[in-house]
């Protein structure tokens, strides 16, 4: 229905650049059924999030006695839940520390895979070498391997990462006193894990974007005597900002929202990110939604800001991977 009436409408108004407000209003009203459906869906899709936000600023007694939508009738709001969540509950496991941990974990875990992935994707897209397609396939195959498969061996490696070196030295008769380190009590272990788990998707997405760059640019740069790395840094990276931005957002959201990897590799409480903190809170406070909803909203706030400020790139990135130019 819409398609036909539109082609008529565009035919009629093609002459004028911008139609007068009245006609646009008529068109808007003509689309009322579409708006009705979309608004209805929007409301349903906002309900859980809004409910969570409203619950987090209600008083405990109100939460227990009535649904969150009653808050607008009652008109009683409070920030007490947030203050309570931020308070240290003995030891070091506060939401504030979790928040800082989340940042420390997420920032390197986002940039390392994006940069390493971009280098590899460039090679797969524009350089010729032996086994290129085979290696690419071996990397892409990782997209369907469940992460859980790697947990136990990696944990064992993390418990004593220098064990292979020590064995090697013993083999050649060297008596070196290598320090005993444990990656389960350091952020490095988490950075490595997230980098490895994020790389296959980063390589896949960036390669499909790099392949679409115009060939002439590379030839021109080569004529000018640019090295391969020079081309990568000065031409490929600046031209791929949309794709790089979107994979950055993806990886950021993935790492920030991750619970499983952090639960397994960050065993010392001083390393735990927000999601683990929230998970602990859920098991301690259970049905106490005044506390839990405030904690949940604090966990969400950074992804929400990142998403809404970079939304445009998020969409183009999803498309770069699927819609081939």
């Amino acid at each position: 229905m819409t398609t036909r009436s539109e082609s008529v409408a565009t035919g009629k108004f093609a002459a004028s650049e911008r139609e007068p407000l009245s006609t646009r209003l008529v068109e808007f009203l003509g689309k009322a059924p579409i708006h009705f459906v979309l608004i209805l869906i929007s409301v349903i899709w906002l309900v859980p999030t809004v409910g969570l936000l409203v619950t987090s600023v209600r008083e405990r007694q109100d939460i227990l006695t009535s649904g969150w939508w009653m808050a607008f009738v009652q008109g009683r709001f409070t920030l007490a839940n947030y203050l309570r969540v931020m308070q240290p509950t003995g030891g070091s496991d506060t939401i504030g520390l979790n928040f800082i941990n989340s940042l420390i974990i997420t920032i390197p875990s986002t940039f390392l895979p994006v940069f390493f992935g971009a280098m590899a994707a460039y090679a797969f897209a524009w350089l010729k070498f032996r086994w290129r397609d085979t290696i690419f396939l071996v990397i892409i195959a990782l997209l369907i391997v469940p992460l859980q498969m790697t947990f136990v061996p990696v944990l064992q490696l993390y418990n004593d990462p220098l064990a292979p070196l020590r064995a090697l030295f013993a083999l050649v008769g060297l008596q070196l006193n290598l320090p005993k380190i444990q990656l389960t009590s350091s952020f490095v272990g988490l950075w490595l894990a997230h980098t490895a788990y994020g790389l296959p998707f980063a390589i896949f997405l960036l390669r499909s974007f790099f392949v679409g760059l115009p060939r002439d640019l590379f030839e021109a740069a080569k004529m000018d005597g640019s090295s391969e790395f020079g081309i990568f840094v000065r031409i490929v990276l600046p031209l791929s900002v949309p794709a790089l931005a979107s994979i950055t957002i993806f990886q950021f959201l993935w790492v920030w929202n991750d619970l499983l990897v952090a639960l397994i590799y960050a065993q010392s409480p001083s390393l735990q990110p927000l999601t683990v903190g929230l998970n602990n809170m859920l098991s301690t406070y259970g049905p106490e939604w005044d506390i839990v909803s405030a904690g949940a909203f604090l966990t969400m706030i950074v992804p929400l800001i990142v998403f809404f400020s970079l939304q445009r790139y998020f969409v183009t990135g999803l498309l770069a991977g699927s819609v081939k130019a």
Binding site: F116, M119, A120, I139, V145, T150, P153, V154, L192, Y197
Partner: peptide, 17 residues
């Protein structure tokens, strides 16, 4: 160009697999 990515994945995914 593949080295950094492959080195991390070798330790963290291929070896564990």
């Amino acid at each position: 160009y593949l080295l950094p990515a492959m080195a991390v994945m070798a330790v963290m995914t291929y070896y564990p697999m």
